[in-house]
Simulated scan of single mutants.
Amino acid sequence: MTAGPTTTEVDTPHGPARVHVHRTDGHPRAVLLLGHGAGGGVEAPDLKAATTAALAAGLHVTLVEQPYRVAGRRAPAPATQLDAAWLAVAAWAGEEFEGLPFLFGGRSSGARVACRNAADGKAVAVLCLAFPVHPPGKPEKHRLAELDGVEVPVLVVQGERDPFGRPEPAPGREVVVLKGDHSLKADVPGVGAAVGEWLEEVSPAPR
């Protein structure tokens, strides 16, 4: 049995972030950092499913609450602030889990943060749950450059009726489409299965 999570606050340039660390049993393969959506928290069902799957695959998991959420605000901070806070947590995690490779991930806005910072954070892979390709009803305002710019393996898990659109598969990018919408609540077991299978493929061997 894995022990329960530990929670700590990490200083960032924009206030403290809160991190919830779940440690896998045995010899870990890597660490998965997961971020929440713009208006939600780390208790989202798809994030829980991804956490369970990652622990079973031999990864530690760090769920990251952005400083604006820790401060009690629901409106998201600007992208530059989200990115700076994310990289500050990644630096902290690099010391906490010295020597282990890192995967970045998140749902919705958190997936965008993971993509934008994959290179600077030296992530070996990126997990995107419900990547928001464009605002609902505005396909011309797409954010595909963030996703296309990732140069490591990517998994996108998307609902078939997601009003934020759906990215296409591409070299190095796998897209799994499940029933449901942007919340991914309609097939939570499907989320866990897709994430677990992908992690087994892309995660380094245990050390």
Rank of each mutant, 00 (worst) to 15 (best):
A17S: 14
K141G: 09
G121P: 07
G72E: 11
A57V: 00
Q81W: 04
L155W: 04
V195M: 03
R74Y: 00
D46N: 14
L33Y: 04
G26L: 05
L129N: 07
D162R: 04
F97C: 12
A79H: 03
P171F: 11
P139R: 13
L129F: 11
Y68P: 03
V152D: 04
A79K: 00
V191E: 04
A3Y: 00
S183A: 14
V150T: 13
A118V: 11
P78K: 04
A79M: 08
P13H: 11
V156Y: 02
A118H: 04
V202E: 00
Q81H: 04
F102W: 06
F104C: 07
F97L: 13
A88T: 03
R166N: 02
A85H: 01
A194C: 11
W86H: 06
F104L: 15
E95V: 00
T6W: 13
A3K: 10
R207E: 14
G37A: 09
D148E: 15
P139G: 10
R207L: 07
A123N: 05
R143L: 15
R69V: 12
G35M: 15
A90F: 01
L55M: 05
C128Y: 03
S108F: 11
G180D: 13
A205K: 11
V177F: 05
V70C: 06
C115I: 09
P101H: 06
A79W: 10
